[in-house]
Amino acid sequence: MVRRSRDDAVATRGRIVASAQLLMRQRGVHCVTLEDVARAIGMTRGAVYAHFRSRAALMDALLSCAEADLAERLAPLARHHAGAAPDVLEPALAALLDGDGMARHVSLLAFLLQHKCGADCELCPLRARVLRGVDMLRDTLAATMPAPALAGLLVAHLWGLLSAHALQLAPSGLSGCAASLARLYAPPGMQRGACPDAAGGAAFPRDTP
């Protein structure tokens, strides 16, 4: 009986998180309350509060989902030592851009990054976690890029593509952009540590996705 109750609680928590993700994607984070989430899955507000004491607590769970998704998609890339396998960059980019996986987290991440701190703030620790995740993504990508200094630009490029997809301004098949991105940031023949510039050196192809 205890085991079943725990399983039921985990399943209910998962329904709440999935409902919140869908509503926030459709309406934006600002427009979604715990009451909205409860109504969408036929629960009372009190039942939702039994699992999440506040909206910030729900956002904490949603951010954990985003972190788990990112870690899973970067796992093959993270296993390689710096500079050992630049050819893993393209499949890693394809994994990040594949389907709805990461795009479904965009509205939450944008909300937390734009957060303005107030008194007794519960969101600032979440914003700090997002920033640490950005640093981790940049460092992981940089480890296999010929020009590691461009990893921040690649992260910005990825964010733009995912945001466009989340806003339905880009197709769901963004993983098809991975090959072009890989050639753009790790062009064939470019030596690790080289940074292209206008004066000379390796030039990036003009096939930006």
Results as ranks from 00 to 15, higher is better:
139 D>Y: 05
148 P>K: 04
134 V>P: 10
160 G>N: 07
149 A>M: 09
158 L>F: 07
160 G>V: 04
138 R>M: 04
165 H>W: 10
164 A>G: 04
142 A>W: 05
148 P>H: 13
147 A>Y: 13
164 A>E: 02
167 L>H: 15
144 T>W: 11
143 A>G: 07
166 A>N: 11
148 P>A: 13
136 M>F: 05
154 L>G: 06
161 L>S: 13
143 A>P: 02
164 A>I: 00
144 T>P: 13
148 P>I: 01
146 P>V: 01
162 L>W: 01
142 A>E: 09
133 G>E: 02
165 H>P: 03
147 A>L: 06
161 L>V: 08
149 A>H: 06
156 A>K: 08
143 A>E: 01
157 H>C: 04
131 L>C: 05
140 T>C: 14
157 H>W: 10
131 L>S: 11
139 D>F: 11
147 A>H: 11
146 P>A: 02
149 A>G: 08
135 D>H: 09
157 H>P: 01
165 H>I: 02
139 D>C: 06
138 R>D: 02
142 A>V: 02
159 W>F: 10
132 R>T: 13
142 A>F: 05
151 A>P: 12
153 L>H: 06
159 W>E: 07
164 A>R: 03
136 M>S: 06
151 A>N: 02
149 A>K: 07
134 V>Y: 12
144 T>I: 08
135 D>K: 15
152 G>M: 04
147 A>V: 06
132 R>F: 13
133 G>D: 05
136 M>K: 09
161 L>H: 10
152 G>L: 05
156 A>P: 15
137 L>H: 05
133 G>C: 03
166 A>L: 05
141 L>T: 02
136 M>I: 05
139 D>G: 09
166 A>Y: 11
160 G>H: 07
157 H>I: 03
157 H>A: 08
160 G>E: 02
156 A>E: 15
165 H>R: 15
139 D>N: 14
150 L>Q: 06
133 G>W: 03
157 H>Y: 14
164 A>H: 01
141 L>Q: 15
141 L>G: 12
135 D>G: 15
162 L>V: 00
146 P>H: 02
166 A>R: 10
134 V>E: 09
157 H>D: 11
159 W>M: 06
166 A>E: 12
133 G>F: 08
141 L>H: 06
150 L>C: 11
141 L>W: 12
145 M>W: 01
156 A>D: 14
134 V>M: 06
144 T>S: 13
134 V>N: 09
163 S>H: 09
154 L>F: 09
146 P>F: 03
166 A>S: 11
153 L>K: 12
145 M>A: 00
161 L>P: 14
148 P>W: 09
144 T>K: 15
162 L>M: 03
147 A>Q: 08
133 G>R: 00
138 R>A: 06
158 L>Q: 01
154 L>H: 04
159 W>S: 15
149 A>D: 07
156 A>H: 07
135 D>E: 07
139 D>R: 07
153 L>Q: 12
155 V>C: 08
149 A>V: 08
146 P>G: 06
152 G>D: 02
131 L>T: 10
157 H>M: 12
151 A>Q: 03
137 L>N: 04
152 G>Y: 03
161 L>T: 05
145 M>E: 00
167 L>K: 14
135 D>N: 09
152 G>S: 05
140 T>M: 03
167 L>T: 12
